[in-house]
Amino acid sequence: MIREITFGQYYAADSPIHRLDPRIKLFGTLIYIISLFVANNIVSYAVAALFLGIIIIISTVPVKFILKGLKPILFILLFSVAFNAVLTNGEHVLAKWGVFVISTEGLIRAAYMGARLIMLIMGSSLMTYTTTPNELTDGLEKSLGFLRKINIPVHEMAMMMSIALRFIPILIEETDKIMKAQMARGADFENGNIIHRVKSMVPLLIPLFVSAFRRASDLAMAMEARCYHGGEGRTKMKPLQYKRADYTGYIIVLVYFAVIIATRILFKNVLHF
């Protein structure tokens, strides 16, 4: 089940998007998400969709792959669309049933809501598809470096993130192994009522925690043995350096954002909400 989630995975390829500095990708994603909330009419949305479409094509990540990332949030998506559709009061009521009202405004709002969520997920998963976890951590560490001045341990948090990324597959495998070992002792993880099922997790979770702690302490010792002593005085094997394409990237993102703002002002009456 865990293996089915593609959201947050990396899709190995060598496209211009893949080669961009992670900082511009983080910045671009942030701006894109903001732009989705700035957009309030059909033209803005069309621009946003077009922009995403072009980036996806350049990235060479198959659309099928990106759409698969939507699967886990399908329920939330449908729920919020339905919620908006039936609970928005509008002038043009199409149907009414108790507290539920279906109006033209409601339908438009729901459609925008759905489009916004879909683009938001597709946009941010495109970032993770084109950026390795390491680059992402490095990018976050460097972009958020200014937070160190107010005593936020940015380096340590980034280190924790990258260690977590390394150990998640190991722990998933371990979960599988412990589960099988307990099943070999007659444990049943599938049947029974909710209380029984929660109880049946104990023989799985305790060994998993014990193992995670043992690994953590081993790893801490191994890191210490290799001269790790925090972020101070550390150099980088792969330091982040902007190239020309990255500056172009920043300009494109800013131009895109300006266009979105312009469409918001210019077309504010076209199918707006």
Partner: peptide, 30 residues
Amino acid sequence: RSHVGLVFQYPEHQLFEEDVFKDVCFGPKN
């Protein structure tokens, strides 16, 4: 599974009860 017992590699990684005796009881209890 009670007739064909399987001891995995590093089986000590599956121990979870508060004492050894209780842990050994887990199988027959199931």
